[in-house]
Simulated scan of single mutants.
Amino acid sequence: MPSLKDLKTRISSVQSTRRITSAMKMVAAAKLKRAQEAAEAARPYAERMERMLGSLAAGVSTDSAPKLLAGTGDDQTHLIVVMSSDRGLCGGFNGSIIRAVKKRIDQLTSQGKTVKLIATGRKGVSLLRREHRDKLVHGFEELVKPYPAFDQADAVVDKIVTMFEAGEFDVCTLYYNKFISALTQEVTPLQLIPFASATEAEGDEEASDLGGAQYEFEPDEEAILKALLPKNLSVQVFRSMLESFASEQGARMTAMDNATRNAGDMINSLSITYNRARQAMITKELIEIISGAEAL
């Protein structure tokens, strides 16, 4: 059995850990409110822009469509962009998205496809570098600091567009954690290039911004799409950053709350063990004193 000094040291150490986890929980809770509001505010704008571009794309022929819409005409090389965090202690936030990405990599490689990776966040860069160093073409560390900003999304988009114009990939898919609640985050894939409207894929006719009416465009649809498609990339990447940041804070708040409660349970258990050991030692000393007195 550990000595009283060892138990006391352990209790003191766990108490210090509980103070740290409690403080981290409060910091994450404070950041979560702001992050959640930003993520929820960005959703309607990003969804409406995606729907509008989907409606415009429906009236454009494949021959005259911009390259970001039509793609390269092939799907041999896939670029996967992974949104992770720069810091840990956030439960399964990073693990869940890395598992989803690894599963997708295995699917594509089994089909004979070439996979390239771009990771944002120090944790994602580190985890992917261990097993897929040859596929990781670029990593953005400490990008979302202190909060997501649109120019940070532009930096990621510039890298993606540069690679696409150089013919380095055919299809680009973004993986991020969508914020559902402080307890729930959903790993979400989003195809960026070539542009694919989610509403079009679902066949939701009521979601069309054109509503079946006839419009005349000035300039024409091709020119509008050519101007808006790069902006849409920035909007969607920025939205994913906001969603990912809110998910990170929610996951960290939940993880630190669990850690604080577990530390409290451990302190209670150690305190009981300490008191029992102390009581046993006192009883032993009393027995030795009484035995000595009787011997005289």
Rank of each mutant, 00 (worst) to 15 (best):
D63K: 12
D63R: 12
D63C: 06
S64Q: 01
S64T: 03
S64H: 09
A65W: 11
A65D: 06
A65C: 02
P66E: 09
P66Y: 01
P66K: 06
K67F: 12
K67L: 15
L68T: 14
L68N: 13
L68E: 10
L68A: 13
L68F: 15
L69G: 03
A70S: 13
G71F: 11
G71T: 06
G71C: 10
T72A: 04
T72M: 14
T72G: 00
G73L: 10
G73F: 10
D74V: 11
D75L: 04
D75V: 07
D75R: 14
Q76T: 11
Q76C: 10
T77L: 01
H78A: 08
H78F: 12
L79V: 07
L79G: 05
I80H: 08
I80P: 05
I80A: 06
I80Q: 05
V81Y: 03
V82P: 06
V82K: 13
V82M: 14
M83P: 05
M83I: 01
M83G: 03
S84L: 10
S85Y: 01
D86T: 11
D86M: 13
D86F: 08
D86Q: 10
R87C: 08
R87M: 12
G88I: 14
G88D: 08
C90Y: 03
G91D: 03
G91T: 01
G91H: 02
G91N: 12
G91A: 02
G92S: 11
G92M: 01
G92W: 05
G92E: 09
F93D: 05
N94I: 05
G95D: 02
S96V: 00
S96E: 02
S96F: 02
I97T: 13
I98F: 00
I98L: 01
I98A: 02
R99T: 13
R99P: 04
R99G: 09
A100D: 00
A100I: 03
A100G: 03
A100F: 04
A100P: 00
A100M: 03
V101T: 02
V101S: 00
V101I: 07
V101C: 02
K102T: 15
K103R: 05
K103A: 15
R104G: 07
R104P: 03
I105A: 09
D106P: 04
Q107G: 06
Q107D: 11
Q107M: 13
Q107A: 13
L108D: 00
L108I: 02
L108G: 00
L108T: 04
T109H: 11
T109R: 15
T109K: 15
T109P: 04
T109N: 07
S110N: 11
S110Q: 11
S110F: 01
S110C: 06
S110R: 15
G112S: 08
G112C: 03
G112Y: 05
K113P: 04
T114E: 11
T114Y: 11
V115P: 08
K116D: 04
K116E: 07
K116W: 08
L117N: 01
L117H: 00
L117M: 06
L117Q: 05
L117G: 04
L117R: 09
L117K: 07
I118Q: 04
I118E: 03
A119N: 04
